[in-house]
Simulated assay, not measured.
Amino acid sequence: MKLVIAMLMDGVIYASWLFVIAAGLTLIYGVMRILNMAHGSFYAIGAYGGASLVGFYLAGGYPPWGAYFMLLGAALIGGTVVGLLIERGLLRMMYGRDEVVMILVTYAILLILEDVIKLIWGVDAYFAYQPYTLLGRTKLAGLSFANYDILLIFVSALICFVLWWGLNRTRKGKLLQAVIHDRDTAAFLGINVTRMFTVTFVIGAVLGALAGALTAPGISVMPGIGVEVIILAFAVVVIGGLGSVGGALLGALIVGLARSAAVHLYPDAELFVIYGVMGLVLAFRPQGLFAIATARKI
């Protein structure tokens, strides 16, 4: 029973982290049809920004609980600034190009941002463990879990609900869905598609940065973390279906539970199992489990 509980909790915690990363990636693709390779850099910027702000804040002798607001602030500021600069400064001039061209462009942005991160923060590791340890630990069936990790589950669930509510229960969300299904018709009907693209890209960038900021207290923040994360995020959105937020949630759960089972039962298969699951899903559903339906021209 302990083993089952450990696998379930570890899998759900890992899935929660994966969903926050993948949600921004799949949202950008669903609206803009851009498979954003630079999303990993947004994650890295959020992690570095969060670790830096937490360090400066706590060095000033301020109350420790304020470090959580530093993490949130780093994600909002970093994601918004970088997202606006990239979308308005470069991507806006590339709209209408082939999807493969956009992948190459965003990959170039990833390489540039990786060097920019090294220029700003250097190559030394950053640590911001205080928010992780401050909440303490909880025992469940004789097993100890960090409350910070449990909090991440609720944060992920909240983000999922907000995205669902925003897309399905608000006027702006319904306009955005119109852009998703047919951007040309939406523009003809008076929807400002360019503005929708900007808002979507910034939201996606903030979600990527938020994932990095939330992860920073539990890891050593060092160069290369963005590249590692983007591969996992791609696996999740491919399994769930490109452009589907619900698919990203299901894909994150599948990957999280599969990885957790491998770690506890056969650790040597940890890296293989993620791509094994992806290959198995694509063998039967090449478009993913919940791919957005697209109109076919006859």
Rank of each mutant, 00 (worst) to 15 (best):
R33Y: 09
V237W: 07
Q287K: 06
F201P: 03
A216M: 07
G246H: 14
V227I: 08
P223V: 00
R171M: 11
N147F: 05
I153F: 07
A209I: 00
G55F: 14
M278I: 00
E114S: 13
Y68V: 00
N168Q: 15
L249F: 15
S16W: 11
G240M: 10
V273R: 06
I45E: 08
G79D: 07
F127L: 11
A209T: 00
A209W: 11
W121V: 05
I45P: 13
W121C: 12
H39C: 13
A67T: 06
L111K: 07
Y14Q: 01
V179P: 09
V255P: 02
I77S: 10
K118Q: 14
G40Y: 10
F272K: 08
F145E: 04
T194V: 08
T200N: 05
N147A: 06
A51T: 06
G11A: 10
L25G: 11
I239T: 01
I159H: 03
L163W: 05
V206K: 02
S260C: 04
A157T: 02
L152Q: 01
V123W: 12
V237N: 13
S144E: 07
L175I: 15
L151D: 01
T294P: 00
G83R: 10
L8T: 09
A6C: 01
V82A: 07
G96I: 02
Y14D: 10
L134P: 11
T200Q: 12
G218E: 12
R183C: 02
G243V: 15
G256C: 04
N192I: 05
Y266A: 03
F161Q: 14
L167H: 15
G40D: 07
V255G: 02
M196K: 03
Y126H: 09
G256W: 01
I13L: 01
F290M: 10
G50L: 01
V100T: 15
F284S: 09
G240P: 04
Y14A: 05
E87I: 07
G142A: 12
K172E: 15
G49Q: 01
M1S: 15
W121R: 00
T80A: 12
G66M: 09
P286D: 01
W65N: 03
L134G: 04
H181T: 12
R183H: 04
I13G: 10
V123M: 09
F42H: 15
A295C: 03
K297D: 08
A186V: 08
N192G: 05
D268Q: 13
F284Y: 07
L8G: 03
F19Y: 14
I5G: 08
V100R: 05
A248K: 12
G204A: 11
K172H: 13
G61C: 08
Y266G: 02
A47T: 06
V245L: 13
A235Y: 03
L271A: 03
A258Q: 04
G89M: 06
D182W: 08
G96F: 04
K172D: 08
V82P: 10
R183M: 00
F69Q: 04
G122C: 04
S52D: 12
G279I: 10
F188L: 14
T200L: 11
A23T: 10
I225A: 12
D182P: 11
M70L: 15
G73Q: 03
G246L: 13
P223C: 07
G256R: 06
L257E: 07
L119S: 11
M278Q: 08
L71S: 05
V227W: 15
V281C: 06
